[in-house]
Amino acid sequence: MFLEINAILIPAAVGAGIALVCGVIIILVFRFFSVEVDPLAETLENIFPGANCGGCGYSGCAAYAAVLADGTEKNTGLCTAGGQDVASAIATELGVAAETVVPVVANVFCQGTCDKTHERYHYTGTPHCASASGLFSGPNSCTYGCLGFGDCVSVCEFNALYIEDGIAKVNHNNCVACGKCVAACPKHLIRLIPKHELATNVTCSNHWPARVAMKACKAACIACRRCVKECPVDAITIEDNLAVIDQMKCIHCGKCVSLCPTKAIRQGLLDGPKIEALQKEKEAEAS
């Protein structure tokens, strides 16, 4: 078989030529149009957890690092996922005094589990809180309460929320306080509270008068004012038929907890779902 050498050489030469020209152009362009990345911003970005959760209020870790590096943002303690450790490390890198970070955690202000509330009607629409909420404020007897379809669970990237007994709960070990669930809840039940082992909260959001609230939910705050009178530091106030504990004043003495007639006040943060614990027990039994 006669093989013409040019049939291989010419295409190879043309291909190689085009590749070479492309390569040279790329190198030239990258040299003349190189963007200098602030080395400080890069160092800062490496300190952040890299979750890109947006808890700091910027679009991601890189954006927050950039504004810190060029000095437009002075507060070093905005990273909710990193907490005090990251704030100190960032402050050291920038050469400023470390900001004290009050670690916060998401908390669901509702205890209206299935046994405490009842359905006003049977909802068969799409299983989303937002859609259920649009139909007569949802099927719950308490229209302030958690619908339990888990819109918050689906937005959480850290697996920190779970549904148990028909209401959402927060596993504080996983929560980084990015605030996505706060925005997702159509009932505005989730708020960020200072993280404390004995965090004491009126876990209810119902503003109805006592008589109506009691009918709707057995765990509703009825605004009886017993906790207000008992509180040694005057941290509790009644706002629109609902007791509210000022987390900054609260000393976590727990006096109001035992006093509350409807057990609307809860103390302590929640851990993971009960289901997991049960599964582990089962596994232990099996083995």
């Binding site: 010419i10 295409p11 043309v14 291909g15 085009i18 590749a19 492309c22 390569g23 152009i25 790329i26 362009v29 990258f30 149009f33 190189s34 963007v35």
Partner: peptide, 30 residues
């Protein structure tokens, strides 16, 4: 002109990749 029409796929892939790289660098700067 050199009857290498059959090379178009290979050459185009190469050129498009290079063009995108160059564009990215230029846009990033300007």
């Amino acid at each position: 002109p050199v009857n290498l029409g059959y090379l178009q796929t290979v050459v185009f892939i190469l050129v498009i990749a290079a063009v995108v790289q160059v564009l990215e660098a230029i846009i990033r700067k300007t």
